[in-house]
Design a protein around this nucleic acid. Structure first.
Lengths: 215, 215
DNA sequence: TGTACATCAGTGAACGCGCGTTCACTGATGTAC
DNA sequence: TGTACATCAGTGAACGCGCGTTCACTGATGTAC
């Protein structure tokens, strides 16, 4: 309780730490606003408001709203990549059920980010759309590589592997969207969504088992 | 050449016809603006500008911008329904190739409307999102009915038919998006897109042929 | 440890602008007689 | 056919508002000595 250096001593936050906290508040507040809005409809002033700073202070952190948006997209995509890496490491991930389980958990713990990605993927800000689209392509191409290592697929043409990866990613994307809507009126329940997705993955795998890479 | 009623006589447009023309210009101009924008980012004044009228005259046609948006969504969805009806009537539509052909033609002749639908489907205006989502469900359910009549599928559980229809619609949706991007940098060519989609449909059909509706 | 100066996150006033909406209006078209 | 009146799509001024951005500033934190 003395003032000579005990653990209880008040450590005043450094200037850099404060700045970082405000920056994080800007990103986080924006993600919150995006829960039911499009990025294109945000104003710099309301974003600043959510972080509790005056509009002009925004420029201490980003040159423009769009720049903040790109950072948000990059952060969200980093999260996605991490998910893929985790899934690959986990031994059971080759089964459809286990992979879906990872996806559901990830969506549930990063709802705002997934909502942001799904909304801006086809949205109105070209810079964001391009960034997200690029990441989706990388995603498909990583999954293509994974597939090429699976037993029975060693001799497939890369074109065929790619189209398979593509259809899997499409199906997973709509799982994400459905999950995000699942607590709203008219939304299907999480159980229904997962069960349907499992069947879809099984259907695709059945098709792949029968596939003859002709021509 | 007389003024007594020949075909060359000038027929002044009726007031109702003029009004209808302005209304159409508003809808059409808005669709044009939406080629690279989100609906949520439009302003009433710029919409009015594209139709060549003063902002206040807008209210002679719609109570609000949102109301115009809903009409736009309804029009676009009518076009989609028409496409499905045409596809069903055409005899060859049971083959993947023929159906894809119809889709490609329809997308090419209604690019703006498809762009609008794909952009607002996950977009920021709840009213539009709901309207489009409802239509997509109807779409899946109609396709489910079509599938249930196909040879070999008579005994499938409706749940399984639905999940198959769902994955087909997802794949077709991404075909539409790809087609809309196909003339832009980084876009794949129309030929690549169609070829991949054909393979995907074949893969799904192979899977369905092997499907055992167990449990 | 104390002092003098530099840094810089955040402030607050001010600007010009496009916005949605109101209102009273204009003048061509439509209708009743 | 002609006249007198009603309708109504489009006009133009005006309003208050939130916007992005500029600018000079404040005062706490950091640094050099």
């Amino acid at each position: 309780m003395s003032s000579t250096g005990s653990a209880a001593e008040i450590q005043p936050e450094s200037r850099a730490a404060r700045k970082e906290r405000t920056r994080a508040a800007l990103l986080d507040g924006t993600l919150g606003l995006l829960a039911d809005r499009t990025f294109a409809s945000l104003s710099l002033r309301e974003v600043a408001r959510t972080a509790g700073i005056v509009p002009t202070a925004f420029y201490r952190h980003f040159a423009s709203l769009e720049e903040l948006g790109v950072v948000l997209a990059e952060d969200s995509m980093r999260m996605l990549r991490q998910m893929l890496r985790d899934a690959r490491r986990s031994k059971g991930a080759k089964s459809a059920g286990a992979s879906l389980d990872i996806l559901v958990k990830q969506v549930r713990s990063h709802e705002d980010q997934f909502r942001f990605l799904s909304r801006e993927r086809y949205g109105g800000v070209p810079e964001l759309r391009r960034a997200i689209d690029l990441e989706m392509r990388l995603f498909v191409s990583e999954l293509t590589t994974d597939l090429s290592r699976m037993p029975g697929l060693e001799n497939w043409r890369s074109e065929d592997l790619e189209m398979s990866a593509d259809i899997i990613v499409s199906a997973m994307f709509s799982v994400v969207v459905d999950l995000l809507e699942s607590d709203r009126p008219n939304g299907r329940t999480q159980q229904d969504i997962v069960r349907r997705a499992e069947k879809q993955l099984r259907l695709i795998m059945l098709g792949m088992a029968e596939w003859r890479p002709s021509r």
